[in-house]
């Protein structure tokens, strides 16, 4: 049975401290709870969480839904947003964790990548170097979400055409965002339209597609 690997890259820099990060945690919990009620997701979805601030950590390796326990997410007082480093770690983890198909064995589905940030990468040079590396990993789709007024969408647009901008960093917004992530992840058991294939459900109303 093919697994569907889902990587979540979450910004934990100083500006996320307090209410925003609490809202993210609530959103994550709700997402996992709703995916667990989906028999299709339960068979295939595996999730990994990578956080980035001045340090980059994979706080949860690729884990099947039923045994997932979301670890506590810490945010430092202040400091840079090392999204470039996060992409570097992501590439290492994808190489190690995602099983590619071989002529003898079916591998995983193409992984999905969701990035949520409320700022912009501080390590611009590394970030730009990592973009072609990420593209080489053949993600099924990459969805970037810029939350709050200070988020810069420009660097994200270099990585993916699917960049969405969230107006605020409150709980409703993140709840919507994770609801949408879970809807995107469980799209596999939906009816397929006769005209065109729609890979993702329409984004929630709070999200503005800026391209």
């Amino acid at each position: 049975m093919r697994r569907l690997p889902v990587y979540l890259l979450l910004d934990t820099s100083g500006s996320m401290r307090g209410e925003p990060i609490e809202a993210v945690k609530v959103g994550l919990d709700a997402m996992v709870a709703s995916l667990r009620q989906d028999p299709f997701a339960l068979e295939s979805v595996h999730i990994s969480i990578i956080t980035f601030d001045k340090d980059v950590k994979q706080i949860m390796p690729l884990t099947e839904l039923e045994s997932m326990q979301i670890p506590d997410i810490q945010t430092p007082e202040s400091g840079p947003t090392h999204l470039g480093m996060a992409l570097e770690l992501l590439c290492q983890k994808v190489d190690a964790e995602v099983q590619l198909s071989t002529p003898e064995r079916k591998g995983d589905w193409m992984p999905l990548l969701f990035i949520m940030t409320d700022g912009k990468p501080s390590d611009v040079q590394l970030y730009n170097q990592m973009i072609p590396e990420v593209k080489k990993r053949h993600f099924g789709s990459i969805i970037a979400c810029a939350a709050g007024v200070k988020a810069d969408t420009k660097p994200l647009e270099l990585l993916t055409s699917q960049v969405y901008s969230l107006d605020t960093t409150d709980s409703t917004t993140f709840k919507q965002f994770f609801k949408w992530v879970s809807a995107s992840v469980s799209v596999g058991n939906r009816s397929i339209g006769a005209a065109d294939e729609i890979v993702l459900p329409p984004p929630p109303p709070e999200v503005h597609n800026i391209i």
Partner: peptide, 23 residues
């Protein structure tokens, strides 16, 4: 533990050995 009480009995729960055996 999955919180599915009260939800619709979709066929996928039953058509899968893993869902039947494990959940």
């Amino acid at each position: 533990f999955l919180g599915i009480k009260g939800k619709e009995k979709e066929g996928k729960w039953y058509a899968s050995a893993k869902n039947q055996n494990k959940f």
